[in-house]
């Protein structure tokens, strides 16, 4: 029961304030998306909010983009989407696989070390992305290796590390040493105890980390802009070359489509990892 945090009834000014601020937060998050979504159903080709009539014609355009061969870009939208997905899955897998043990080590290790490490792993977030992008590009070009997909995947892993680690760490916070000790006293090896007892308890945090990794990698633009090549390019890059030329309703429809794809992915990951009805 969380009654004390947000009372379901009564609570007077407290409840009102919390609800008011929370709705303000929702408004700030959702308003532009809402406007864009409404506009994508506009019947006319000139913008102007709210639109005078509604239709699905722009979604027809989007469907055609995917079905017909597209020559307006180095990679077709289908290829870019698949590349984006593949990279996002790789990034999700690697970042989670490395962050779970680290979070465990930090939570059980010395406090001072933990503070330092947390800071170190927050650094990728602090760097101006443009700077990081050009640095990665110059390094990649000087390596004289054909990195393929990894050109983009490696920087993405770096970018999501802070998020995945934070989520894993906060999941570790609630797990007391006693639980593990109990498992060990029942005859499990320490590693076994971690795998069987701690990791399942971290599930919610791991899941949140996975989802962040997925969303960030799937939508990352700045660093990818420096790293992509004619042969390996992602959906945000494809999208960019469209939005620069015009913000017609078909671009908005495509944005709504991308949001839908993201939501679908989130739900999918949620189902896969958390089983039915957990966390989100």
């Amino acid at each position: 029961m969380r009654i004390a945090l947000l009372p379901t009834e009564a609570g007077g000014s407290y409840r009102l304030t919390i609800l008011l601020l929370a709705s303000l937060g929702v408004l700030v998050s959702a308003l532009p998306v809402l406007v864009v979504t409404i506009m994508s159903f506009s019947a006319s080709d000139t913008s102007g909010f709210p639109p005078e009539g509604y239709s699905l014609r722009w979604y027809g355009d989007v469907a055609r983009m995917f079905l017909e061969e597209d020559t307006s870009s180095a990679q077709s939208v289908v290829d870019s989407t698949l590349t984006s997905l593949l990279i996002a899955v790789i990034v999700m897998g690697i970042s989670t696989a490395v962050c779970v043990p680290l979070a465990y080590a930090l939570a059980r290790g010395q406090r001072r070390v933990r503070a330092g490490m947390e800071l170190l792993f927050t650094l990728p977030l602090v760097f101006p992305l443009v700077m990081l992008g050009i640095a990665f590009l110059l390094i990649a070009e000087s390596l004289a290796l054909d990195l393929g997909l990894w050109r983009i995947a490696i920087p993405h892993v770096v970018l999501v590390l802070p998020f995945v680690l934070r989520n894993c760490l906060s999941a570790m916070n609630g797990i007391s040493v006693e639980i593990e000790e109990a498992a060990i006293s029942l005859g499990a090896s320490p590693l076994r105890a971690i795998w069987d007892v701690v990791v399942p308890l971290m599930r919610a945090g791991i899941l949140a980390g996975l989802i962040f990794a997925l969303i960030i990698s799937f939508n990352e633009f700045t660093i990818t802009f420096f790293m992509y090549t004619i042969d390996v390019s992602t959906l945000p890059i494809w999208m960019y070359s469209r939005t620069v030329s015009s913000l017609d309703p078909s671009t908005l429809a495509l944005s709504v489509f991308i949001i839908a794809a993201d939501v679908l992915l989130i739900v999918l990951v949620d189902r896969l990892i958390a089983g039915k009805g957990n966390l989100f």
């Binding site: 307006s72 870009s73 180095a74 050009i134 590009l137 110059l138 070009e141 802009f225 420096f226 992509y228 004619i230 390019s233 890059i237 960019y240 070359s241």
Partner: peptide, 16 residues
């Protein structure tokens, strides 16, 4: 065709 960037971004990419 790669259709991304302004002139100065193209120069930056080619230099790199």
């Amino acid at each position: 065709a790669d259709r991304t960037g302004s002139t100065s971004e193209m120069v930056a990419k080619l230099r790199a």
